[in-house]
Nucleic acid binder design. Structure first.
Lengths: 174, 174
DNA sequence: ACTGATTAATTATGATGTTAAGTATCTAAC
DNA sequence: GTTAGATACTTAACATCATAATTAATCAGT
């Protein structure tokens, strides 16, 4: 980045350089990854979030809404808006749980399955390119560090919160 | 995650397990980091995106809007919506560039500087906790890998795009 | 001096993120 | 049998994301 004359703020606020790095680096890297996948999704008329839903259902079978929120890392209010559209397009279906009418089960429908089948080769091609370019070993190392950081931050958050860990809107995976 | 009976999709679509990992791991880790900082920002009435703007101006001095978009990794249309509000709250100010009336320079105002000063100790405390819990060396290793992945993916995207790298909406840092 | 191409920023639009509040349902305690 | 508290999901409201289109201004070529 362009080096500029130190501002008053810079002189009086010695915030650590890395302080801005971690969230920004994660955001930038994620955008760089998604940039490769987004065109394929767009050409099939699904957003990244919709894809995550279809993908989770394909991978794990029918899920309840709270399970789907966790699997896709989407917030419940977001799911409540996304699911009706996917249902309308007959990519998924929903049915209430007889034992508890508050809950409902979301399933992948044939058209959703077909869409996944169509996108899978594109997706795999991108992953193969990423692995080739960056290195499978380094990817695994990165994933390991990300997982460890997430785990340690959740422990930290649990200590700082007054509420029990996981009581917030978006729950981490147990 | 709960292990379920393999679905038809699972049997017919052998998508790699890690294929869903990288974007999701980045997203989850970022959320785990932001979870520590968000309460402090909320208590000062600024969103994460607004904070990034103030932080970038404090760190680098006055910036033009395109530079600010790059420094904050925010999209230009988003900036066009956020900046007027920050200006109204007298946290920043804007003035046109005389040499090119299409452009304008954004500067931090005294109230913006004060807000940063108030938030800085909270922020630093969190970073210190993160470094202590996760390890400074591992953090640096993670940042290194993230940077390398981002760089290699931008090279890959450049090869795949018909347009020159960086022609898209959100430009990576040169 | 004029014009087509390009650039900077804004606006439109639809989607999702995020928090708070609401509705329907369930459960444990009495 | 009743009720307070909890849970699952939805809706409201506001913010930002993401893409496309628009407006205003600049610039290179003629």
């Amino acid at each position: 980045m362009t080096s500029k004359r130190p501002t008053l703020a810079q002189r009086s606020l010695p915030m650590r350089p890395f302080s801005e790095s971690v969230p920004m680096a994660l955001l930038r890297t994620r955008e760089a990854v998604m940039r490769l996948f987004r065109p394929g999704l767009r050409s099939r008329g699904v957003t990244e979030q919709q894809w995550r839903i279809l993908r989770a259902l394909a991978h794990q079978g029918p899920l309840e809404v709270t399970e789907l929120a966790e699997a896709t890392f989407l917030l419940a209010p977001s799911l409540s808006r996304i699911l009706p559209d996917l249902e309308k397009r007959r990519l998924i279906s929903r049915r209430p749980v007889k034992a508890d009418l508050r809950r409902s089960v979301v399933s992948l429908e044939a058209q959703g399955l077909r869409l996944i089948g169509e996108h899978a080769p594109y997706s795999e091609q991108m992953y193969a390119r990423i692995a080739q370019r960056f290195g499978t070993e380094k990817l695994e190392q990165l994933l390991q560090l990300l997982h460890e950081l997430e785990t340690s931050l959740e422990a930290l958050a649990g200590e700082l919160d007054r509420r029990p860990a996981g009581a917030g809107q978006r729950k981490g995976s147990p």
